[in-house]
Amino acid sequence: MIKTTEKSVFKLPKSLKAGMKFPFCAGCDHGVAIRLVAEVLDEMNLREKTIAVASIGCSVMLYDYLDTDCVEAPHGRALAAATGVKRTNKDKFVLTYQGDGDFASIGLAESLHAALRGEKVSAICINNTTYGMTGGQAGPTTIMGQITKTSPNGRNEEYYGYPIKIAEQVALCDGTAYSARCSLDSIANIKKTKEAIRKTFEVQLQGLGFGFVEILSTCPTNWHLTPQESHERVRNELFQVYPLGVYKEV
């Protein structure tokens, strides 16, 4: 019998805690996004010099998954905390993992000012167009017409105004070195998201400025769709409002 060489083409990333399990709902894209972050940390050999900043929302328990040092920031303040970490520890790798409510609603000032100051940190924002952890209320990224717990008739101009386009706004800041919007709806887009995360990390290491990636994700529970239908919604509805692409790269 000819002995063949076995090769692992996929394994649990070392930057994830051994034995950890994600507590997310079935089909939620958070698990994919966090795994991609861990894979890139592994591939760029950053785990030991990383200080991650967790935010509030479904993203909160980052420290239960990532096997890196991690500090939790109050709601919206992840990039302020990250600024404090990085400015006093220039040799460390600093990343935030936030939801769209944390990044672009309550924390919009902290987020955009970190970008304007060109903080050498990497920020990842999960955009699922709702407040997931609190049960699916309208958020800053809820699209026009979207029905949520607090927009029972759909988001309209009169009561809610318009959604924010985060990657475009971040790209407008002079201190931003990289800003992109990706999606996790397909294998091809998962691969692109991983490359965008890598780029976001690289601009920090090169000292070029603020690195940012917005990741369109699903919330099947609060969207009242199956995981499969949720990805179809991302493609059919969100891509028109939130086009994928790189909005800034220096």
Binding site: K7, F10, A26, V32, I187
Partner: peptide
């Protein structure tokens, strides 16, 4: 490994290729 890439819960813990 597309199944492993897609899985949000890392239930597919390893993909082995010969």
């Amino acid at each position: 490994a597309m199944c492993a890439m897609r899985c949000p819960d890392i239930a597919i813990t390893e993909v082995v290729k010969n």
